[in-house]
């Protein structure tokens, strides 16, 4: 069983999933930030491999990617980061990146190196199931979960296709749009989650636009198996660019709050 499967099957409450842009604002600070989030109790860590032109990301994550790239973050540095994080924890780590980063490296090589570094899953938002043959095969070869997104407007027929390929957990995009913190939750999440649940045994994690404990509690109550928070966490990194201690302190406090909310809502 993969680390991600083991986590969900052993958890009595929704998982708290935290996203950080890898290498933001520089590889060294990024390691401290990831460790702070792990220490605060996050159940899964998503690490973004920065790309110059991510189409599915809003301004917050794009600025983070730019900072990371300007500081010399490469896929090699991200694998080093994963290795360093993995040395101190068994928490599942998921890499999230644009297909081009994977393609240019060579799909097989990317997955092999990700697995060797200690990652557990890969998310490629601009790779729909139709284009995923090589990636899914490589994920299988190296024991990684290939995680797919389901959008609010994914038609029924496409859902079958997504579910056929998906591993780890299903990433349910809560809102129509790109990443970025928003307030409130769209209507009908409970029905949406229930409808998905009737179609798959995969855990269902909800992300995009989740900014704080309020929404996390509501999603937990709506039946989500996991809640993914990204831009709101990245914004904390951005707020304390010159001050690593303050950055890590606020990250810990914020993520601990999210983890608490996950427990309350369950």
């Amino acid at each position: 069983m993969s680390r991600i499967d083991a986590l969900f099957s052993g958890l009595e409450r929704p998982a708290c999933i935290a996203y950080l842009a890898g290498g933001d604002p520089d590889p060294e600070t990024s390691l401290a930030a990831v460790r702070a989030v792990v220490d605060a109790g996050a159940d899964i860590i998503e690490i973004g491999v920065p790309f110059t032109d991510p189409i599915a990301d809003g301004p917050t994550i794009r600025r983070a990617d730019n900072r990371a790239l300007a500081a010399g973050t490469t896929p090699d540095r991200i694998f080093e980061l994963v290795r360093a994080v993995r040395a101190g924890t068994a928490v599942p780590i998921v890499l999230m990146t644009a297909y081009n980063i994977v393609y240019v490296r060579g799909v097989d090589r990317f997955y092999r190196e990700a697995a060797e570094a200690g990652a557990d899953g890969v998310i490629i938002p601009d790779m729909p199931p139709e284009e995923s043959e090589d990636a899914v095969a490589a994920a299988g070869r190296y024991g990684l979960d290939q995680i797919f997104l389901v959008a609010p407007n994914t038609p029924e027929e496409r859902l079958d296709l997504v579910l056929e390929h998906a591993g780890g957990f299903l990433y349910l995009v809560s809102v129509q749009g790109v990443t970025g913190a928003r307030s409130g939750l769209p209507h009908g999440m409970e029905e949406r989650i229930a409808a998905l649940r009737s179609r798959t045994d995969l855990p269902i994690a909800v992300g995009f636009g989740i900014s704080g404990p309020e929404q996390v509690r509501a999603l937990a109550a709506a039946g989500a198996d996991g809640v993914i928070v990204g831009s709101a966490i990245v914004a904390i990194v951005e707020k304390h660019l010159g001050d690593r201690d303050a950055m890590c302190a606020e990250l810990k406090e914020f993520v601990a709050g999210l983890c608490g909310a996950v427990r309350d809502g369950a």
Partner: peptide, 20 residues
């Protein structure tokens, strides 16, 4: 299942939201 290829080039590399 892959669509819109010219030899090895082309395809549909977009987020799920746009596939439908």
């Amino acid at each position: 299942m892959k669509k819109g290829y010219f030899g090895e080039f082309g395809g549909q590399f977009v987020p799920e939201t746009l596939m439908g």
